[in-house]
Amino acid sequence: MKRIFLMMIALSLSLLICGPVRAQHIGPYVGANFGVNLLMDAKATDELGNFNMSYSPALQWSAVVGWDLKPNSSVGEGRVELEYTRRSNSLDSVEFVEGKVSGGGDLTADSLLLNCIGMIRDESSWSPYILIGLGAARLDASGLKVSGQPLSTDTTTVFAYQLGTGVDYALTDALSLDFGYRFFGTTAPTFTEPGGQRFKTDYFSHSVDVGLRVGF
């Protein structure tokens, strides 16, 4: 993990000192992103009360396919894209009335979002942007455990959204690097416990990633 961060920082610094002006790409593109995801502590509620779930940070990756809008487009500067992302966080601990106990298993979110990205473009190769995305996520509670005992193994599909910001760096007319931050959230998913009762929890995460886009 530390090595990945160091590589990202080194790459960012090297790009900061070189900035050839490129022609803007217009049209379709594909890309892939890779980064780190921090799933926030979440409150879970069932008919017996509420408890808190803490997760470990995890890697995430995305694949995008989209369209670079032409400059001065009637809908603004930027691009629209379809993004698939996968992140899988381990349940680190669970807090009940009696205190925290160890957790186990993974909570995996596969999301498919339609992103609208607004960009600020000028003569520079650097283009900051903001992003909003809407779509759906499939949340898979895979062998979630409390003190080694089963908590849930279940799957649900929920409405998902994300807000993000970042900066693009145009390597060539058709090749761009993307350094971004994303806040990702879903409507509250519900999972089944071994006893048959269901608990509802939150799903919000922060992530930073780096990506590469290729235009056609």
């Binding site: 408890f51 009940f96 409390v146 003190s147 806040f183």
Partner: peptide, 21 residues
């Protein structure tokens, strides 16, 4: 953005007993 970020700070003092352990 603020509402979404704040809504993510959602843990509370637990009220449920641990009957898993």
């Amino acid at each position: 953005v603020a509402i979404l970020l704040l809504s993510s700070c959602g843990t509370e003092t637990p009220t449920r007993q641990n009957d898993f352990t």
